[in-house]
Amino acid sequence: MSNSEKVSGHLEPWSSLKGKVVLITGASSGFGWEFSIDLAKAGCKVITAARRLDRLKSLCQLINSFQSSSCDTPLAVPLQLDITADPSVIEAAIQQAWRAFGYIDILINNAGVRGTTSPALNLSNEEWDRVFKINLDGAWLCSKYIAICMRDAERGGSIINISSISGLNRVKGTGTLAYSSSKAAMHTMTTVMALEFGAHNIRVNAIAPTIFRSEITKGLYEQKWLPGVLSKIMPLPFLYDASTNPAITELIRYLIHDSSKYVTGNIFIVDAGGTLPGLPIWSSL
């Protein structure tokens, strides 16, 4: 090990997470795909969960190729999970996930949907229900059943909700009523769960990121005007070509590691300062 690696390991102990078991929802693409790979490289055992089982199998095959073929226990296993299913179905899936490695230390509620961009008066009841079913109900049910397992096993743990800057009071935009409301509700859910789950040594935090390059934002990133706009509205240099690493993945590693054992009930904003109030943002365009 080089001296630089030794120093990095001392200053950032969360670089190594060997022995931790993580369940990640929405792992078949985007953030979830990248979280799974990054955490496996850090030494975690990963349970990848989503509806698209074929994609999960491909992801797990990739992750398991990181280790020696002589290892009997895989680094990653797939779990087919539809977070819009009935509570009993989700509960059964969580119990199956728990049995995969014998326990789970961390749940990352990453699955979500932005929904259609529509003025509030044109927003259908069905679309409202769909967005909340995925963004809020699914996260709540996964958290509930994981927390029950953690409580009964007396292991404690960490729950990380992937939210959005759209759920912040200081950020509001037209056409996103269902999405913004669901993410604001997730922030409240995070703080109340942190209050209640703390008695069982379970920490609950949320991460509210800005836009990053992913398959969901592919169309936006293809717009030629975007780099110019981002350079004017972001106080910090915006990593235009970055996906999640290191802006979110390093924070997730920290919230998994025992270094954050006193950290709960927080909404971590990852946005290069773009949502800070009082800045002459739009006037500079």
Results as ranks from 00 to 15, higher is better:
residue 257 H to R: 00
residue 157 G to C: 14
residue 202 I to H: 03
residue 123 L to R: 01
residue 285 L to A: 02
residue 240 Y to F: 02
residue 277 P to I: 07
residue 249 T to H: 05
residue 227 P to I: 03
residue 203 R to E: 09
residue 70 S to R: 14
residue 33 W to L: 07
residue 135 N to A: 09
residue 124 S to K: 07
residue 81 L to V: 01
residue 255 L to V: 04
residue 224 K to S: 14
residue 139 A to Q: 05
residue 41 K to P: 10
residue 210 T to R: 13
residue 242 A to Y: 12
residue 18 K to A: 09
residue 229 V to G: 07
residue 3 N to P: 13
residue 55 R to V: 05
residue 200 H to Y: 15
residue 164 S to Y: 11
residue 108 I to V: 01
residue 85 A to G: 03
residue 85 A to L: 07
residue 243 S to Y: 14
residue 200 H to C: 14
residue 166 S to L: 15
residue 230 L to A: 13
residue 267 I to V: 03
residue 119 P to I: 11
residue 266 N to R: 09
residue 83 I to R: 01
residue 6 K to T: 03
residue 140 W to M: 13
residue 61 Q to F: 13
residue 209 P to W: 13
residue 109 N to E: 05
residue 147 A to H: 10
residue 124 S to Y: 07
residue 271 D to F: 02
residue 171 V to T: 15
residue 183 K to H: 03
residue 109 N to A: 10
residue 207 I to Q: 01
residue 155 R to W: 05
residue 101 F to D: 04
residue 95 Q to Y: 14
residue 162 I to S: 11
residue 269 I to A: 06
residue 178 A to K: 07
residue 99 R to N: 12
residue 151 R to D: 14
residue 227 P to R: 08
residue 249 T to D: 09
residue 209 P to S: 12
residue 108 I to M: 01
residue 29 S to F: 12
residue 72 D to T: 15
residue 170 R to A: 15
residue 140 W to Q: 12
residue 134 I to C: 00
residue 100 A to W: 02
residue 250 E to L: 14
residue 250 E to Q: 15
residue 113 V to M: 12
residue 9 G to M: 00
residue 266 N to D: 09
residue 87 P to S: 03
residue 224 K to H: 12
residue 31 F to E: 09
residue 185 A to V: 06
residue 77 V to M: 02
residue 92 A to W: 04
residue 142 C to Y: 03
